[in-house]
């Protein structure tokens, strides 16, 4: 049962655990965020829950210029997950600043913009423009999206490329800078360290895993782009392993994501070393997942007599 009240204060035998976390300069009321591309601009989910309860809402990937995205079909259901090849469809950062920002700036939580690009200068220019928006306290840099032919993949798969784009953005962006890492690499900890050295305040991982699906009867791929990004519970064990590896390698806070469907999944990521988590594909199955996970984390902390979520970050017993 959920008890309303302030953290640390006892209400009839229930103690509210402290759920707040800090990522760089970003203060969050709880460690639950939405994963970019799965939650629109937040407004799409307002009917299902009080979205201001969510610690941070990471909105759709935004690029310097308008992108029409990939042709249909862009999605294929797979065992315990799905592949997508949306291709960063968005109307560009200028449209975002002018038309979207006024609609979301009143939402009483951290609204974070996911920034993507196909050239270092585009990342930097997009970040610079968002830097001036008062109610956007952080950006998440997508250096890992596997969908875009000329997109972020090249940056995210090498330490040098990742550091290059992060350095360029760091020069023009002075708020909290989160960098979203690609799992499609040999050594993700190495990339994380390079990104940390280049000035990132936090890393989030994992982005989708590059995958493929085939229609055997028609002998054709199920996605227009042949390959796409795999998400959902199918990727969770890989995500957990990578979060664990990266958390050991860096000092900056790690944000974990990949197949989290419920509070228990979220707890596993905290134990592996994540300071916060993101909910992605689960939003499609239960649009109210985020608030259920927040409540479930609180229940877990109560049940195990922890007073704050920070106590279980990296608390995996080996």
């Amino acid at each position: 049962m959920r008890v309303q009240g302030r953290p640390g204060i006892q209400y009839g035998g229930f103690v509210m655990a402290e759920l707040s976390v800090q990522i760089g300069k970003l203060q969050m009321k709880n460690p639950v965020m939405t994963a970019s591309g799965t939650f629109g601009y937040g407004l799409e989910f307002e009917d299902f829950m009080d979205i201001s309860r969510i610690g941070g809402i990471i909105v759709k990937g935004t690029t310097r210029y308008h992108r029409e995205g990939n042709p249909y079909p862009r999605m294929a259901e797979t065992p315990s997950g799905m592949l997508n090849a949306v291709g960063l469809q968005n109307k560009g950062v200028e449209y975002f600043c002018e038309y979207i920002y006024p609609q979301i700036s009143g939402i009483d939580t951290n609204m974070i913009v996911n920034v993507s690009g196909s050239a270092v200068e585009d990342y930097a220019e997009t970040a610079r423009m968002i830097n001036s928006l008062e109610k956007i306290p952080a950006i998440e840099l997508n250096i890992s999206c596997p969908n875009v032919k000329q997109g972020g993949m090249a940056f995210g798969v090498s330490a040098k490329g990742a550091a290059e784009v992060v350095s360029a953005v760091r020069k023009v962006y002075d708020k909290t800078l989160i960098v979203k890492l690609s799992p499609n690499v040999t050594n993700i900890a190495e990339i994380a360290c390079a990104v940390e050295a280049a000035g990132a305040d936090s890393v989030s991982l994992i982005n989708t895993l590059l995958g493929m699906a085939i229609d055997a009867e028609r002998r054709r791929p199920l996605l227009s782009t042949v390959t796409g990004g795999l998400s959902g519970p199918a990727v969770k064990p890989i995500a957990l392993r990578m979060v664990w590896q990266v958390a050991k390698a860096v000092k900056i806070p790690v944000i974990g994501l990949g197949g989290i469907m419920n509070a228990t999944d979220a707890i596993e990521f905290f134990l592996a070393g994540a300071s916060a988590i993101q909910i992605g594909t689960a939003n499609f199955i239960d649009p109210a997942t985020c608030v259920k996970v927040i409540d479930g984390i609180n229940d877990y902390l109560d049940r195990h007599h922890y007073s704050s979520v920070q106590e279980i970050v990296g608390a995996l017993e080996l």
């Binding site: 989910f45 949306v86 469809q89």
Partner: peptide, 9 residues
């Protein structure tokens, strides 16, 4: 996937 205009699939 989402049914509400969020995922753009």
């Amino acid at each position: 996937a989402c049914g509400v205009g969020a995922c753009l699939c």
